[in-house]
């Protein structure tokens, strides 16, 4: 119940925290008014609470280095992504491309494009190698593979240990390559989610 407990702690309202704790623990809740649904078990919640955001709250314990990642990568990833992350056939390249994003032939890789290293961890953990092999790597292996890819991109050293804390601190080259930063989470104006239509409204002919 890692995440829910965290939210409980940050709540200032004591009563609400108690209610939430109860919901997290043993008490069964339902959708008010309609009385449907039930409180998920801890195991059920853990099974779906697998998306890792940029502050790494959901990252599990474990660690790995690029050195440890190299043999796993060679065995399980190189066939598609190339020995050095250069990409094979239609499969994405994972290394290089820094400095290419402002040319007509941009090379988007996890190294040149991603603003947070957590995205790499999350994607490998949930989706790589692709179906039907996905979701079979241990947390240690995912840390090691992420470290391997980051180090091949020259973003961290071969010996840097990646874990729940260090992964979040990795400075990605394209951290400030996106706008607006942070992304809009509210309506800009009546019905507007994308300000560009407003800014650049073409003149009526």
């Amino acid at each position: 119940m890692r995440c829910s407990a965290l939210y409980c702690m940050t709540k200032s309202n004591f009563l609400l925290s108690v209610m939430a704790l109860l919901a997290c623990g043993t008490a069964m809740a339902q959708l008010p008014t309609y009385n449907v649904g039930r409180t998920p078990t801890e195991a059920e919640l853990r099974a779906v609470d697998d998306l890792v955001g940029s502050d790494g709250k959901e990252l599990p314990p474990g660690s790995g280095t690029a050195k440890e990642g190299a043999p796993i990568y060679a065995a399980q990833c190189a066939v598609c992504h190339g020995q050095n992350g250069e990409g094979v056939n239609r499969y994405p390249r994972l290394v290089g491309g820094v400095g290419s994003l402002n040319t007509p032939h941009p090379i988007k890789t996890v190294g040149s494009n991603m603003p947070y290293a957590t995205t790499i961890w999350d994607f490998i953990n949930r989706a790589m190698p692709p179906f039907p092999m996905e979701r079979n790597l241990s947390p240690d292996n995912v840390y090691a593979l992420t470290a391997f890819i980051l180090s091949k991109n020259g973003i961290i050293k071969e010996t840097n240990v990646m874990n729940k804390n260090s992964l979040v601190e990795v400075q990605m080259p394209n951290r400030h390559g996106f706008y607006p930063d942070p992304p809009h989470s509210t309506l800009e104006k009546d019905g507007f989610w994308t300000p560009r239509w407003e800014q650049t409204k073409p003149a009526a002919k």
Partner: peptide, 17 residues
């Protein structure tokens, strides 16, 4: 399953929905 920053995380079956 609806969870995260909510007071009552809940799981729904298709029949319930």
């Amino acid at each position: 399953t609806i969870h995260g920053m909510v007071d009552r995380p809940l799981i729904f079956t298709m029949e319930e929905l």
